[in-house]
Amino acid sequence: MTRDDTPSADLDAAEFRCDHCGERFGRERGVRPAPFGDLDTTRWQRFDCPACGRRGETVFVARDAVK
């Protein structure tokens, strides 16, 4: 899974591309699986491909918490 050239601070507008099937999708279409281990879902989320289900990218989503 790769993210197109979008500034990391603008995750809402980020577009992902699945390296397996080529599907392009935004944050709203990405499949968010149940968290694993002690992953804090208020800070980190994983976006899996909605078309083929391949494991996607884990991204930091709590930009406001870091200043």
Rank of each mutant, 00 (worst) to 15 (best):
R24C: 13
T6W: 01
T58S: 15
L39M: 14
M1K: 09
D10S: 00
A62K: 03
R27H: 10
V59N: 08
D38R: 15
E23K: 09
G22C: 03
M1L: 11
P7V: 11
V61T: 14
R27Q: 09
D5R: 15
A9H: 07
P50V: 09
T2N: 14
F60T: 05
E23M: 10
D19L: 07
L11M: 10
M1I: 03
G30T: 12
V31M: 04
F60R: 12
R3N: 03
R63V: 00
T6R: 00
T41R: 05
P7H: 12
P35I: 08
F36E: 14
P50A: 09
P7F: 08
D64G: 00
G37I: 07
F36D: 04
D38V: 08
A65P: 02
F36A: 04
R29A: 12
R17M: 05
D5Y: 04
R46M: 14
A34Y: 07
A62N: 03
G53N: 10
D4V: 00
R3L: 02
L11S: 01
F36G: 04
R54L: 07
W44D: 08
E15N: 09
P35Q: 06
D19F: 02
R46N: 12
G37Q: 09
V59H: 02
D10G: 04
R46V: 08
R46L: 12
A13I: 01
E15L: 12
E23R: 13
H20C: 02
R24H: 13
D38I: 11
T42M: 11
D4I: 05
W44F: 14
G37C: 12
V66E: 06
A14D: 02
A65W: 13
S8D: 13
G22A: 11
R46E: 12
R55S: 10
G30F: 11
D40N: 15
D48Y: 06
W44I: 03
E15K: 11
R55A: 05
L11H: 02
R3F: 02
E15D: 08
M1W: 09
D48C: 14
D4Q: 10
M1D: 11
P33Q: 14
G37E: 11
Q45T: 10
C52I: 13
R63K: 06
G30A: 15
V61M: 06
T58E: 13
P7I: 01
E57P: 01
A65G: 11
A51G: 04
A62V: 04
D10R: 03
R17C: 08
P35K: 08
A14C: 05
A13K: 02
A62E: 14
A13M: 00
T58V: 15
G56A: 04
P33C: 15
D38C: 10
V59D: 07
S8E: 07
P33T: 15
F25T: 03
P50Y: 02
T42I: 06
R55L: 07
S8I: 01
F16L: 07
G56F: 00
C21T: 05
W44E: 10
V66Y: 04
A34S: 14
C21M: 12
F60C: 07
C52N: 10
M1V: 12
